[in-house]
Design a protein around this nucleic acid. Structure first.
Lengths: 119, 119
DNA sequence: TGACAATATGCGGATATACGCATATAGTTC
DNA sequence: GAACTATATGCGTATATCCGCATATTGTCA
């Protein structure tokens, strides 16, 4: 109920952004684009071990980017807010412009968003 | 000119996001909202030392979030792309929803964006 | 209860990051 | 050139992060 100071807001905001600063966690978020998934499904989708996947999910959960829901033996994870997808796609667009400027394969830059889409 | 692999794209994307994952760097980006600024101005604006400010600017520059331009004795930094502001405001909105749910001072959550705006 | 499946976590090592202090570099002006 | 200003960087330290392996926890079913 306490009003956070300006500095605290920026700290929280940075924590939030930092959660996106890992390739595996980005892969997880993209994997959750369409539907909730179990840890095992996510682990397979991103090609990482179960332990590592669970840890990354814990980070995303603690920072509030994903939600967890028990379903019997499984835990089903889902995106907390679809605007997170919008944000990372926005940044991906900016990155695409970067790569184009640097001379990276130009058609690729324009297709980055679809790369992200391809599960 | 080489076509980056899917994994490379995600690595780059994560690097890009990670650059936002620090409170001082977020403060810098907000400080550059309206106009280009020198290192000294930025240092004052965010209340950090010159050395630290310069380092953070180097990170943002290397990742392509800001641009540097020499002007005599000064180096003037500016945002590379205004969509970066949109992205962090989007995430700030999501964070605001979080805080509201958690019961943090409710009017504050709604005003986070203006907090960010206030220089 | 016991066996089993899915998920979480303790531990250790390698690497990265943020920071301050002091110093180096680049540019201006005399 | 020397003196000065603005910015960058080397170095050391403290802390955080990523990862795999093994093990603990939680829940199901017989």
């Amino acid at each position: 109920m306490r009003k956070p100071t300006r500095d605290e807001v920026f700290r929280l905001h940075a924590q939030f952004c930092k959660a996106l600063g890992d390739a595996n966690r980005l892969l997880i978020i993209v994997a959750l684009r369409d539907r909730a998934r179990t840890v095992g499904e996510i682990s397979d989708a991103i090609g990482a071990g179960q332990s590592l996947t669970s840890r990354h999910l814990a980070v995303l959960r603690e920072k509030g980017l994903v939600r967890a829901e028990r379903d019997g033996n499984f835990v089903r994870y889902s995106l907390a807010d679809r605007r997170i997808l919008s944000a990372i796609e926005l940044l991906l667009d900016v990155l695409a412009v970067q790569l184009e400027r640097q001379g990276t394969h130009s058609t690729v830059a324009r297709r980055l968003r679809s790369v992200a889409r391809a599960s």
